[in-house]
Nucleic acid binder design. Sequence first.
DNA 1: CGTAGAGTTGACTTTTGTCAAAATCCGTGG
DNA 2: CCACGGATTTTGACAAAAGTCAACTCTACG
Lengths: 228, 228
Amino acid sequence: MLKGRFDLMKKGKHNCDLKSCFFCKLSLKEWLPAIDVHRQMQQFKKGELIFTEGEEVKGMYVIYDGIAKVHKKWGDDKELIVRFAQKGDIIGHRGLGNDIVYPVSGTALEAVTACFIDLQFFKSSLKVNHELTYQLMLFFAEELQESEKKMRNMAHMPVRDRVINALEKIQEKFGTTDDGFANITITKQDIANFAGTTYETVFRVMNELVEEGMIKVSGKTFGIIVLR
Amino acid sequence: MLKGRFDLMKKGKHNCDLKSCFFCKLSLKEWLPAIDVHRQMQQFKKGELIFTEGEEVKGMYVIYDGIAKVHKKWGDDKELIVRFAQKGDIIGHRGLGNDIVYPVSGTALEAVTACFIDLQFFKSSLKVNHELTYQLMLFFAEELQESEKKMRNMAHMPVRDRVINALEKIQEKFGTTDDGFANITITKQDIANFAGTTYETVFRVMNELVEEGMIKVSGKTFGIIVLR
DNA sequence: CGTAGAGTTGACTTTTGTCAAAATCCGTGG
DNA sequence: CCACGGATTTTGACAAAAGTCAACTCTACG
C-alpha cells in the first residue's frame, strides 16, 4: 500500500490547481516528485472533527476548500484556538514530532474538503525530498516565532488589545470582501477562544469598538472590519 | 572566509566532548561532517546580552557552559522568558525563519561560554547535511508543541498553577542537587517572567507553597524543590 | 554607621471572569 | 398566520483573581 503510493512518486509532477497550496507555495510545484497530494480527498461537515487531540497521529491534511480551526483543550469546556486554516493550508502537521498523539484538534468551521497525507508516506517523502524538509523546517520556525509572540501577548497584553489583535489577524488571514468585512463567518465564542478570553468579554469589547467606530459588524454571526 | 570554514567540513568528525551537545543528541556525532562547531568560542559575563531582539541575525550559539535565558520584551519593563538554556543547548536559532532580526533576546544568567555559528555557514550546512535539516525540523516541531501548550496555559491556567509549573519545569531542566534543590540559582523576578506574572505574585505563591510543604527554599536567590 | 538595593508585606485598585436574568431570534407544528 | 419552546444573545450585578503601589525591613558593603 505504501509502495503503491511510492509509484505515484515516479509520475513526476505535482498536479495541483490550488493557487495557494502549501506545497506550491514552497515552489515545489514543478518538480516535487514525491507527493501527489490530491489523491485522497475527504469531506468534513461544518463542526465535524478532522482530527482529535490525544488520538494517534495518522497523518496530516491539506485543505482544499473550506475553513478549519486548530485548537487545544483546557478542561472540559474551554479551549484555545491555535490557528485558523483555509484553502491551501496544512493542518495536523504538528503531529510530526516524536509524539504519537496529536497535540491539538482540528475542526471544520465550514464544510471542508481536505486531502489526507499518510504520516509514514510523508516522512518517507521528507527523507527523499530535501528541499521539502528544508522548507518545512523554515515553516515550523516561522510558526514558532508566531506562537511565541502570541504567548507573550497572552501574558502581558490586556484583553481589549488581544481581542483587537485577534480581529485583525482574522481579517488579515481571510481577506476583506467588497463591502469591507472580513471574508469569514465566525462566532464570538471562537473569537474569544482565539483571543484567549470569554464570550462575554469579546461581546463587550466588540460593542465598545463599534461605538468607537473602529469596527463594523454585520449579521448575527458576522464579518468584521477593523478600520484604519 | 566562508570557504575557510567549509574546509573544516572536510576534516570529518565532530570533536565534541559535551555529553549533551545539541548536535550530538541528534546522533550526528560520528559523521556530521559539515559543522565543527567548537571553533569560535565566546565568553559572556553574568547578565550580559548574547544577542538582542530586533537586531540583525548573525548566527546562533551552542552553549558550552553556563546558563542563559531566551526572552521577549513587552514594553519597557516587562518581558516573557521563552525558555532557559544550558550546556549543550542551542540559542538564537529562532532567527532561522525568513526574518532578518532576532525575535527574542538571549541573556547570560551565569557566565556563559558559547560557540558562535555563523548563519550563512549554518544554512549552507543545512543544504548539504540533510539529516541535520531533518532533525532540526523535528526539533522545531517539538518546540512548537511546547510553545502552544504553554500558550494555552497562559490563557487558561490560574497564576498559582503557572508558578508551580514554572518551578517544575525549571527543576526538571536543571536537575536536582544532592540535598534536593533545583540545581540553579534564579531570581524570583525571572521565575515571574517565565510564569508570565509579577514578582510579588511569585513571592506570595511561593510562600504559600512553602507553608503547604510543597517546596523548600534555600538562600536569597535559591534552589527549589517540588515535593511529590 | 549609613546608604543602596533587594526582599517582604499589606492595602488597595483594576481587570476580567462568572452567573443569572431578560430580551431576542428562529424554527416548528397547530 | 400565530403561538410556543428552545437556543442564543445581550445586559447587569457581582466575585475573584491578579496587578500596582508604597511603605517597611533587612542585608551587604563601603
